[in-house]
Amino acid sequence: MTVIPTLETERLRLRPMTIEDWPAYEQLMKSERAAHMGGPHTTESAWGMFCNDVALWALSGHGALSVDLLETGECIGQVGINRGPLFPEYELGWYVYEHAEGKGYAMEAALALRGWAFNVRGLETLVSYIEPDNARSIKLAERMGAYHDTNASSLDPDDLVYRHPVKQMA
């Protein structure tokens, strides 16, 4: 049985998703803000994605974690590792809700989960699939030390692939 980790950083707690996370998740996925995640989505497709994020832990030993502020317990977003039959490689993804943007939370959460993936899960590399017009995610990936890997495969041929090498964890 897979144990879903709870990780803490200076300001954040990354924890297993709960049904209480669904309303904010649904709202985001149905909005124009989901454009970089294949959206906006219907309620039905958003629910399927939410369930996928949870189920991946049991099926693959990785998945998504909700991101809470340690100080208040407020859920401000999600970070996750995705890989199933649709993804050529393990993908590290992230988002924060609009009111939490610009405070470094996405990077803090992504670095924590990346560290877990390399140091605990034993992955050798991760990629982030990013749409070319998603400048904020490109900038975040680059600040994390990821580089644009023009030789990597992607499910969507228009996506840029940013590779997070293990050496960044040293």
Rank of each mutant, 00 (worst) to 15 (best):
M1F: 08
M1Q: 10
T2V: 15
T2M: 06
T2P: 12
V3A: 10
P5G: 05
L7V: 06
L7T: 13
R11F: 13
R11K: 12
R13C: 10
R15K: 14
R15M: 06
P16L: 14
T18D: 12
T18Q: 12
T18W: 09
T18A: 15
D21Q: 10
P23Q: 09
P23F: 05
K30W: 09
R33N: 14
A34R: 07
A34L: 04
G39C: 08
G39V: 03
G39D: 07
H41D: 06
T42M: 11
E44N: 07
E44G: 11
S45T: 15
S45N: 14
G48S: 09
G48E: 13
F50T: 09
N52H: 12
L56G: 11
W57G: 08
W57P: 09
L59H: 10
S60P: 01
S60C: 10
H62F: 06
H62W: 08
G63W: 03
S66H: 05
D68K: 12
L70Y: 07
E71K: 09
T72S: 06
G73P: 10
G73A: 04
G77V: 12
Q78D: 14
G80D: 13
I81M: 03
N82K: 13
G84H: 10
G84M: 08
G84Y: 06
E89I: 02
E89N: 04
E91D: 04
L92W: 05
L92P: 01
W94Q: 07
E98Y: 00
H99A: 04
H99D: 05
E101K: 08
G102L: 11
A106T: 14
A106P: 14
A106R: 10
A109L: 12
A109W: 12
A109M: 15
L111H: 03
L111D: 14
L113M: 11
R114Y: 03
W116C: 02
W116E: 04
F118C: 02
R121E: 02
L123G: 06
E124A: 15
T125W: 01
V127S: 00
S128P: 09
Y129H: 02
Y129C: 02
E131F: 02
P132V: 00
P132Y: 00
D133I: 09
N134G: 01
A135V: 11
E142W: 04
E142L: 07
R143Q: 10
A146C: 08
H148L: 04
D149Q: 05
A152V: 00
L155K: 08
D156C: 00
D159F: 00
D159H: 02
L160F: 05
V161I: 00
Y162C: 01
H164M: 02
H164P: 01
P165C: 00
P165L: 02
Q168R: 11
M169S: 04
M169P: 07
A170Y: 03
